[in-house]
Amino acid sequence: MYIYSGASQPEESSHVDDQEKYEQFMARIEAGEKIEADDWMPDDYRQALIKLISMHGISEIMGALPEKEWVPKAPTLKRKLGIMAKVQDEMGHGQLLLRVAEDLMRPYGKTRGDLMDDLLSGDLKFHNVFHMPTKTWADAGMVGWLVDGAAIISQTNMLDASYGPYQRALQRICQEEVFHAQHGEAIIMALAEGTEHQRQILQESLNRWWSALLMFFGPKSADTTGSSKQDIMIKYRIRKSSNEELRQAFLDKYLPRVFSLGLTVPDETAHYDEEKGEWVYQQPDWNEFKQIIKNKGPRSKERLRLREVAYENNRWVRQALTSEAVGS
């Protein structure tokens, strides 16, 4: 269906042609038009999209794992069903996003299998929060409420993204996130209004997740960790806001709710500065962040191993159904 436009262009397309196409491309995205998979696009746009969307997609797939630990353990029938549906959605988000990434990678002849290989070899990274352990049922709630909350902030920010297939996938995803937000709230609310023990595991969980949540949006500027893709994302209208703006929006939306439940955050300096109109907080350890996303986080190895065993152990199934014997 999609023909990679590059392939049908004359090989020796001149620099002038490219310049013209580039200007046309920029004019289109500035006018709010959407770029489709087979449209001409600058190379760094394609590269940035592949990197962003494959990481986003694989993070959904890896993100299913920490929460999934609690799926068979969920404490009631309704919670078992709810968290199952929620984690299923996350796998579904992975499916949508990987399809978008796969279409972008077609000109390079790469497929789903290559993405899985890249993940297992460490070339394709997944989000910092999904390298963290989950220790109690409260963590299942914390992931649903605040990790999804952070994800919602960053995903809604790209709902107007210039790349059509990504924008449409995000539209579907954000619709489902409304359920995720409420699923998370429901678990948290029951714990917050529950027994001593329930309130205790809830507070402990928040203490455990706090710095990972701050890290979620990435460092304020490139100098912190030496790499940041935020500028190109904004230039090409993939997202609108900076890392820090997103983190502030997250704190805006969630901290009042956190406090209203009688919970505290493990940072005594955290407060809203009325004058500056922003939240003041202690920076998380960005060196630790760098280690985590290099697959050197607390649970990185185990999660990758889980994915690897499941992937390799089921290879025979995929091989069986590629054989000529089946259908057409």
Binding site: G149, I152, I153, T156, N157, L159, D160, C174, Q175, E177, V178, A181, Q182, E185, A186, M189, E193, K240, S241, S242, E244, E245, L246, Q248, A249, D252, K253, P256, R257, S260, L261, E278
Partner: peptide, 28 residues
């Protein structure tokens, strides 16, 4: 049922309208 619970805590529930409005983020 969460709507009422949040109301008691003087907070709003995260419904579709609220979440979809997060598209716009305060500029710094």
């Amino acid at each position: 049922y969460l709507r009422q619970k949040w109301k008691e805590k003087e907070q709003g529930m995260l419904d579709e309208k609220e979440i979809m409005s997060w598209k716009e983020v305060k500029k710094k």
